[in-house]
């Protein structure tokens, strides 16, 4: 479903060149729950950003469903991201000025035929158990609730792949478990493909496959 071929990512300044990813090859199957582990700064998030077309690799190709999307322009990339990916960030990345419902509708605003936006957003919020919080602002929610809203936002557009960057990193263990349960449910009952970056080994072990990273390279343990 999602394939990375010979991905390199180099950050250059005037004096320093930092290699964040070094010749990474990875394939994610449809319906797979994959976790990426590794120490801080090893390039996990960079890899996830490249997978989700939020960042461009210095070299290499990203293929989604057989389509090479590496060279797409801003407009096409945006459209592709909107249809294909749902993102869950460690720090939730909710827009504090908007209500919970408006935050969830966000991906649908950028579709040409989104359907009944509010209805779809309500359904997504029901799925994560937060339909009673629709009119609240993100600042009025607990961390776990905020991450549930972020998950509702990620799934509202029915994307094929959910990319979660340390989704439980800012949550206590109880809330973290709730979020993991939710992700597993999305994977098993909805058949969604999920790629998750995590530090937590026990959470990673619950997934179908673990990929380890060290210094920008995929390693085998």
């Amino acid at each position: 479903m999602l394939t990375l071929n010979d991905i390199n990512k180099i950050y250059r300044t005037k004096t320093i060149e930092t290699c964040a990813l070094n010749n990474v090859n990875l394939h994610v199957e449809k319906g797979e729950f994959l976790s990426i582990m590794g120490p801080s700064g090893c390039g996990k998030s960079t890899l996830l950003n490249i997978m989700g077309l939020l960042d461009r690799p210095t070299s290499g190709t990203v293929t989604v469903n057989g389509e090479d999307v590496t060279g797409l322009g801003d407009r096409e990339l945006a459209r592709f991201r909107n249809r294909t990916f749902g993102f869950v960030f460690q720090s939730f990345q909710l827009i504090n000025t908007l209500s919970v419902l408006d935050n969830v509708t966000l991906p649908l605003l950028y579709r040409s035929n989104p359907g009944n936006i509010e209805q779809l957003a309500r359904e997504a919020l029901e799925k994560v158990g937060l339909s009673h919080r629709m009119t609240h602002k993100p600042t009025q929610l607990s961390g776990g609730q905020a991450q549930r809203v972020a998950i509702a936002r990620a799934i509202v557009g029915n994307p094929a792949i959910i990319l979660a960057d340390e989704p439980c990193g800012n949550l206590d263990s109880r809330m973290g478990s709730e979020i993991m349960e939710l992700l597993h449910e999305l994977n098993t009952s909805d058949g969604r493909t999920i790629v998750m970056v995590t530090h937590n080994e026990s959470q990673a072990k619950e997934t179908d496959r673990i990929v380890h990273f060290f210094d920008g390279q995929q390693v085998t343990l």
């Binding site: 939020l54 407009r75 459209r79 991201r81 909107n82 990345q93 966000l106 991906p107 605003l109 950028y110």
Partner: peptide, 16 residues
């Protein structure tokens, strides 16, 4: 900036 980043991540292009 973060708001714009989120909007772009979820499918908004620059001109929108």
């Amino acid at each position: 900036l973060p708001e714009m980043g989120v909007r772009k991540a979820f499918g908004a292009n620059r001109s929108t």
